[in-house]
């Protein structure tokens, strides 16, 4: 596979897409961990859901 005279543009666009997608994936995972941690903290502090079920449990 040779990329010709414009290799830098091709590589740059693939790298840009990879970077943004990686950022989205990281954001989603980090957000999930953060919300779970906050729910655990709240439950440890004695918060109870109106349904009485565990807050941090996702299932």
């Amino acid at each position: 596979m040779t990329l010709g005279p414009y290799a830098s543009f091709i590589v740059m666009s693939y790298v840009a897409v990879a970077t943004v997608v990686a950022a989205l994936v990281t954001w989603v995972i980090a957000d999930y961990r953060r919300q779970k941690a906050r729910l655990r903290d709240l439950e440890a502090a004695g918060a109870v859901r109106r349904s009485g079920r565990s807050a941090a449990e996702v299932k």
Binding site: V28, D31, Y32, Q35, L39, A47, A55, V58
Partner: peptide, 20 residues
Amino acid sequence: IAAMRNEILRRRVRTLQMLQ
């Protein structure tokens, strides 16, 4: 779907904080 799950959890956090 993953972001929706996060958002639901975020709203649960918000509700619990307001209840508390």
